[in-house]
Design a protein around this nucleic acid. Structure first.
Length: 119
DNA sequence: CGACTGACGCCGA
DNA sequence: CTCGGCGCCAGTC
């Protein structure tokens, strides 16, 4: 089958574009972002990018969680508190370092995927 | 060049 | 719910 090579720059580009598409008040998992970005199984890569993004105010990195709804940071850690504060500010409820995905998980419609993810 | 290391995920016990 | 194990891959050492 045809194997399309993607430059690390493009992967980077797709991941951020996907994260930016997450609506305020909603959250998505690393794996979900990877899938939507066309990088199935590359959840760790998404985490890598979020680490870079922590400096950039542009990317809503805090809307990205683990697949079970837990924050990626250790409870009580500085980063976890910071992320929790940002989420609560958007109306997302955080309990014990975790968010209920059935309540706040982002489930993009086909429409959103086609219009927001330009790749 | 091999080993180790992550803002991860899934499955089975 | 916890633990172990394996998959994944770009950096670091």
């Amino acid at each position: 089958m045809t194997n399309i090579q993607m430059s690390s720059h493009e992967k980077h580009q797709r991941i951020w574009q996907t994260v930016v598409a997450i609506p305020p008040g909603k959250v998505a998992s690393y794996g979900q972002v990877a899938d939507l970005a066309g990088l199935p199984g590359r959840a760790r890569l998404v985490g890598k990018c979020m680490a870079y993004a922590s400096d950039e105010i542009q990317v809503p990195w805090y809307r990205v969680l683990k697949s079970n709804g837990q924050l990626a940071f250790a409870p009580d850690s500085n980063a976890a508190k910071k992320q929790t504060a940002l989420l609560i500010k958007e109306g997302v409820t955080v309990n014990n370092n975790r968010v209920k995905l059935h309540e706040f998980g982002w489930q993009p419609s086909l429409d959103e995927i086609l219009f927001k993810l330009q790749f």
